[in-house]
Design a protein around this nucleic acid. Structure first.
Lengths: 121, 121
DNA sequence: TTGAACTATATAGTATACTGCATTGTTGTG
DNA sequence: CACAACAATGCAGTATACTATATAGTTCAA
């Protein structure tokens, strides 16, 4: 269990951003009830994992609210198994779509490069 | 050559967004100098192509300024061949990175789904 | 020739995702 | 025990990417 500064160093995500994500409901740290002198929040390794997941999902164009849907399906007890599977299947389909788009964009750029290299532009 | 309303219908991109993209320098329509009664702007098929490219690039997490770099390498005469290739190679590397991230995110979600289906959550 | 459907320009407002700052309190090292 | 380095809270500010509104002019079919 680590404090926010340590978590930030480990993941490369600024402290402000981590707090913003936490306030957005993407994860929750824990306070140690035996400590009464402060209200410092501790984060486990699963939070670091979640942050890395968030970073990657963002990099491929998912919004925070889309990411939150997945994270909720990941661990929220209030959501039914059926609803969770539904969300995850939807995300998997979106990922396939993104892979297709990524291949198309790649082809387009490769063609553009080919044209420039061969003076066809 | 079509007007903005037609272009919007064909691509599914709102007129306001098309104007915003044009102002951002992502493409340029043409005015017919023989027409003096108005200053309507016409768009060729290559603009529709560019819009479709923009949509896909956005969907996989590229920002408008990143997309603009590619679009400029695509057709700007002021940019040297060498600089263009450099930009395109950088983008191709970014695309590989995104593909890797997409596969990781997919694996993570598939594992999450497996756990839920098998009651391991 | 009137009215619906377009066109352009300009400006303001919104949503998302941060980012910075000020304040106040806590902890640990020399 | 001072003081740097950390922690929490709250709120203001910024960047990006739209989105809406207002105004004014143009086109075209009935």
């Amino acid at each position: 269990m680590k404090l926010i500064h340590q978590l930030s160093k480990e993941t490369g995500i600024p402290i402000g951003t981590i707090r913003f994500y936490e306030k957005s409901g993407l994860f929750k740290g824990t306070t140690k009830k035996e400590v009464t002198t402060n209200n410092y929040v501790y984060y486990g390794e699963e939070v670091a994992d979640k942050l890395r997941f968030i970073q990657m999902a963002k990099a491929v164009g998912f919004t925070l609210s889309e990411i939150k849907e997945v994270v909720d399906a990941w661990y929220k007890k209030e959501i039914s198994r059926k609803a969770k599977i539904e969300v995850l299947d939807k995300k998997l389909a979106q990922i396939e779509e993104k892979m297709k788009e990524l291949r198309t964009v790649k082809k387009q750029i490769a063609l553009c490069k080919f044209n420039i290299e061969n003076g066809l532009d």
